[in-house]
Design a protein around this nucleic acid. Structure first.
Length: 476
RNA sequence: GGCCUUAUCGUCUAACGGUUAGGACGGUACCCUCUCACGGUACAAAUCCGGGUUCGAUUCCCGGUAAGGUCACCA
């Protein structure tokens, strides 16, 4: 029984650019599972491909995970008992295990040039056969001097059947097995080799990974056998599909940098909630969950097999739900940067009306309009409906009169009281969102304002103080 | 092309042989209302197709179809 073995998971991205939802979800599941079982979560960087490396990727990865609250116990920046966590600094380990394989007769230098290999591939293709390197194994292998790629010699060509924590029993024929490269001619290991050694040395118990690795699993299993080690538990995650078409979500399909969501004003807990549910659910009707609740409910058994499309509308809704769950103080702090000209007191009063009307804090950017100082405008209405429908003009006028009366009966503490008059639509400035404007004299300045704006700010509450603050906003 | 995987409303999903196939997002309608919104109620909407197994298949098996993955000195 492995029941008593401490859970160790890892997230092992390569530093080739920004992180998008796919990678983040893999990290999230590995993290949630480790936390659920009081295990260890490791952040390892797989930087064995110098050509594809993008500078700044590592800080970016760290920033992304940190934003989401996915914190690691061991990793590139914090260190740990199995340091280093950067593969380019672990070459000794790979060489050590490579030597073990060589000694066992399970590894040999690849004598072919790239051109020769290319030719062999083309030849196989023209014969409509599958190219397998192991069909062209050199007869006499020399000692490996490190200048040629080191290949794995598959000990036994056979079919494999294995267990996956999500997919159940998986299998593949012998065609899936080939002599893959362990160490490249530049001295760096390939992913295929490095991740197995690292997971072994770091004591990783569960490997969460995307389903593109199913195809190469027999190669890994074969390597585990050659090294005489037990493979970790494999946890294959379902693909995330792009919103358009039916393709797996990739950077070219518009997969966004996860930090873009932060810039758009999404909350990290909403993002975590959203990503967690893209391929998993707790089996209850609860859809809005905090990270601790997700950890508590998380289980491998409930991870889905089939892919899921990214649905930003649902993310938007989730974000709204999480915004509403926030404390007054947190909401206030989030809104402040978008409405710098407002006093804390005023923002505090307006908070409920604001939060009810937006799905992300980022929306405040378009809602707060600088042309009148700063105030909240409402979304545009269809003019025709208000102005031309049989009795609608009457209704609109009545509303307007009501607001005007309210304003005029109020005793404002501003130096000059507000004078309001109704201006017909024809005289309005024709702005899309200005209907039946009130001409207002505010602090000595004449302004045309949309009366609905005031009510929009007010919501249903007509108390004097609220109207007053609305007018202050307009007067700013 | 070889190998592999997947398949329930438009989307995310529940169901682990017996349900009027449930929920959520989105949509529509109505209610609330001095606009917008919030809230409330209701409606429309799905088991890919064909065979088996079974008293009974969304569920198990086989075949088809469709979609996806993979066949690198990338991860």
């Amino acid at each position: 029984m492995n029941e008593h073995k401490k859970v160790v998971t890892r997230f092992a991205p390569s530093p080739t650019g920004f992180m998008h939802v796919g990678g983040v979800r893999t990290a999230l599941y590995a993290w949630a599972f480790a936390r659920k079982h009081n295990g260890t979560f490791i952040l390892r960087i797989e930087d064995t491909d110098k050509a594809r490396e993008v500078e700044g990727s590592i800080p970016h990865i760290i920033e992304s995970l940190t934003w989401l609250g996915i914190e690691w116990d061991e990793g590139v920046d914090v260190g740990g008992p199995n340091a280093p966590y950067l593969q380019s600094e672990r070459l000794e380990s790979y060489r050590k295990y490579a030597q073990i394989l060589i000694d066992k007769g399970y590894a040999y230098p690849d004598p072919y040039s790239e051109e020769e290999l290319q030719e062999l591939r083309q030849q196989a293709e023209s014969e409509k056969k599958v190219f397998l390197y192991r069909d062209h194994r050199p007869e006499n292998t020399e000692a490996w001097d490190g200048t040629k790629p080191l290949r794995f010699k598959v000990p036994e060509i056979k079919s494999y059947t294995w267990q996956d924590a999500v997919r159940g029993e998986l299998s593949a024929g012998p065609e899936a097995l080939d002599d893959f490269i362990l160490i490249k001619s530049d001295g760096y290991p390939t992913y295929n080799f490095a991740h197995i050694i690292d997971d072994l040395e770091m004591g990783v118990t569960h490997i969460m990974r995307a389903d593109e690795f199913i195809a190469s699993t027999p190669k890994f299993l074969s390597l585990y056998e050659a090294l005489d080690i037990a493979p970790p538990i494999l946890v294959t995650l379902p693909p995330i599909l792009a919103p358009e078409g039916n393709k797996k979500l990739g950077k070219r399909d518009g997969a966004k940098d996860i930090l873009e969501y932060r810039n758009e004003g999404y909350l990290p807990e909403a993002m975590v909630n959203f990503l967690a549910f893209l391929g998993w659910n707790p089996g209850t009707d609860q859809e809005v969950m905090t990270p601790p609740e997700i950890i508590e409910a998380f289980s491998l058994e409930r991870i889905h097999k089939a892919g899921a499309m990214l649905n930003e509308e649902k993310l938007l809704w989730l974000n709204k739900e999480h915004m509403r769950k926030q404390s007054h103080d947190k909401q206030l702090a989030a809104i402040k940067p978008y409405m710098p000209d407002f006093s804390e007191d005023m923002l505090s009063k307006l908070l409920p009306s604001i939060v009810d009307r937006i799905s992300t804090y980022g929306e405040l950017r378009s809602v707060v309009q600088p042309e009148f100082g700063f105030f909240l405008s409402r979304p545009p209405l269809e003019k025709e409906r208000i102005l031309y429908k049989d009795d609608e003009p009457g209704v609109a006028l009545r509303h307007l009169q009501h607001i005007k009366d309210l304003l005029e009966t109020m005793d404002f503490s501003t130096p000059e009281s507000i004078k309001a008059s109704i201006m017909p639509y024809a005289e309005s400035e024709g702005k899309g969102n200005v209907l039946w404007p009130l001409r207002m004299s505010l602090s000595g300045q004449e302004k045309s304002v949309d009366p609905f704006t005031i009510l929009y700010v007010l919501g249903k509450d007509e108390s004097t103080s609220r109207i007053e603050s609305a007018c202050h906003i307009l007067a700013l």
